[in-house]
């Protein structure tokens, strides 16, 4: 599912994926945490990376500082 809307806001799918990254995780772990198929997780991570909310790390992906701010914002 598309995670980032054209106006830069997050779609419901984007929020689900961002919340699932509260702890770092690999793609397959994230499919389990979100209940979404692998292809959706991969395309969602790509979008969240482009938006600067997520970054790749050796064991998978983690939130950036901006991503954490998104999660903590009301």
């Amino acid at each position: 599912m598309a995670c980032v809307n054209p106006d830069g806001s997050l779609s419901p799918s984007g929020l689900v994926l961002l919340r699932a990254l509260d702890a770092p995780g690999a793609e397959r772990e994230l499919t389990e945490r979100t209940g979404r198929p692998l292809f959706q997780v991969r395309s969602g991570l790509r979008e969240l990376q482009s938006a600067g909310l997520v970054r790749a790390i050796p064991v998978g992906f983690e939130l950036t500082g901006v991503g954490r701010e998104w999660l903590s914002s009301p």
Binding site: M1, A2, C3, L38, F39, R42, S43, G44, E47
Partner: peptide
């Protein structure tokens, strides 16, 4: 469902 690549699958 957004922009997808073959490699996503």
């Amino acid at each position: 469902q957004g922009t997808l690549r073959l490699e996503d699958f």
